[in-house]
């Protein structure tokens, strides 16, 4: 489900790549410091993007230093000094990953999900205390989402709405003071969530067919049981519109934020990375389930 939001690496400047990785490392270290080493394994790019985005809305200069870490013990890498946004993004990472793993466990009895959720339990309790309201809101949307999935809802819009709403909660960061900016971020999160959900649904069609589990696209377009790849092809145009339109709304919200800091990185993700990812999934350009790696 997570990890679709990535920069279009070949198009990044080396300096930009360094800074982006600096944010990623900073987030990873923050996770380790606050929630223990295991939690670092759950970090994903979506939350790194959120961290860069939120931090770019403050005009403070980017500070950091070259450091070593467990994953790369021999080479020092540039790491951005963490701030409130790092804390916030890492908290959100814990919340999303915990629910995600728990969901995997209760739905599919996925062992990895079960152990993961167990390992994150303490960290999650700690975050829940800090963000009680957000957790309640997210739980409500998750409940609605799983209800819709159980009822085998046949409208992709309706199901994606709930996931979008979860991401809206995540993006509406309380540390952003301007109310309009928060609202804009929320709309950005909603549309990004929608995009993630639909893209994931399209990506999972084969897997869901194999396990005979629910897939909103299969339901909505009433798959009759013939060739899966030709089915995917017939719905591609419709799905592409839904995905691209959601992204165009993400981009509109981003334009309104008028971010100057880290513009190169953010532009890269918003104007290219997301399109590249969309096309990769839609046209199956050999990325089969790289997101499986938790």
């Amino acid at each position: 489900m997570f990890g679709y939001v990535e920069p279009d690496k070949p198009e990044l400047k080396i300096r930009e790549f360094d800074v982006f990785r600096g944010y990623y490392c900073s987030l990873c270290k923050t996770l380790g410091r606050n929630y223990g080493q295991v939690s670092r394994l759950t970090l994903n790019y979506d939350l790194a993007f959120l961290y860069v985005l939120l931090d770019s809305m403050s005009s403070l200069p980017i500070n950091g230093k070259r450091q070593r870490c467990i994953a790369h013990p021999f080479k020092k890498r540039f790491v951005v000094f963490p701030n409130v946004f790092a804390e916030y993004s890492s908290d959100m990472n814990i919340i999303l990953m915990y629910y995600n793993l728990e969901d995997k466990w209760s739905d599919e009895k996925n062992i990895l999900g079960g152990t993961g959720a167990l390992a994150l339990k303490r960290a999650f309790k700690k975050t829940k205390k800090r963000h009680t309201e957000k957790c309640t809101a997210i739980e409500n949307h998750l409940k609605a989402l799983s209800d819709l999935e159980k009822q085998e809802c046949d409208s992709i819009d309706e199901v994606a709405e709930e996931f979008g709403a979860i991401m809206r909660e995540v993006f509406e960061c309380k540390h952003i003071e301007d109310e309009n900016d928060r609202k804009t971020l929320g709309w950005m999160g909603y549309n990004l969530g929608r995009w993630i959900y639909i893209l994931d649904a399209y990506d999972d069609i084969e897997k869901d067919m194999k396990h005979n589990s629910y897939n909103p696209l299969v339901k909505q377009y009433d798959f009759k049981g013939d060739d899966i790849s030709s089915f995917k092809e017939t719905i591609r145009e419709k799905v592409d519109f839904s995905l691209t339109y959601s992204l165009s709304e993400v981009e509109k919200a981003y334009s309104l934020l008028g971010v100057e800091k880290n513009k190169g990185i953010l532009d890269n993700i918003l104007y290219s990375g997301l399109i590249v990812k969309t096309d990769k999934v839609l046209h199956e350009r050999g990325i089969k389930n790289e997101k499986e790696s938790l």
């Binding site: 691209t244 165009s248 981009e251 532009d267 104007y271 290219s272 399109i275």
Partner: peptide, 20 residues
């Protein structure tokens, strides 16, 4: 207008000038 939003986003300057 809807179709315009679709193509407008897909053919943005950044993407158009990239290696893609």
């Amino acid at each position: 207008n809807l179709n315009q939003q679709y193509t407008g986003y897909r053919q943005n300057n950044y993407y158009r000038n990239s290696y893609n």
